[in-house]
Amino acid sequence: MDKDKRSTGYSLSVNDTSHEISKSWLGESLLYVLREKLGLYGSKNACEQGECGSCSVLMDGVLVCSCLVLAANATGRDIKTIESISDDDSLTDVQKAFVDAGAIQCGFCTPGLLITIHDFLETNPEPNVLEIREAISGNLCRCTGYGRIVEAVQIVSKQKSVGQGGSDDSS
């Protein structure tokens, strides 16, 4: 590794694009840099202590709270944010289920929950309700009481289990 990173910036790979981040205050979190330096406002700041999950992103494929990642320490890692999970004109199955199930009210927690649920369903495509609830226990929602969110995950899970029977899956 570089012996000394004094007085230099660093690069961040976010959604498959490399960005040069100019030096600034060392304490900047990945969340701050994503939002205020890269204009990726989809990741939300609601607590800055890892309690709410609104800032969830994937870092090298691992679900993390971007508020708890020192931005400078995200260099050399692959960051994926809510902005990357679907194209301009499409929705993922989970996004679609959120819309249909009424899982959105104010929507502030929504991006973080979507990142979390996408990650969760990758490893556990057919979860039971308790598993869903534990998986999203790090994502606080103040509007919905979680009922419609759990419902949305179940919708996707059911689709996936039906999908294994051979229906079209364009992932």
């Binding site: 060392l26 800055e48 202590q49 708890l68 990642v69 020192l70 320490n73």
Partner: peptide, 20 residues
């Protein structure tokens, strides 16, 4: 970083030199 950054975010720590 999950304790470290909470202290930074809540202004109990102002890091100037860090080894990850």
């Amino acid at each position: 970083g999950t304790d470290f950054m909470v202290e930074v975010n809540f202004r109990q720590k102002d890091p100037s030199a860090v080894i990850a």
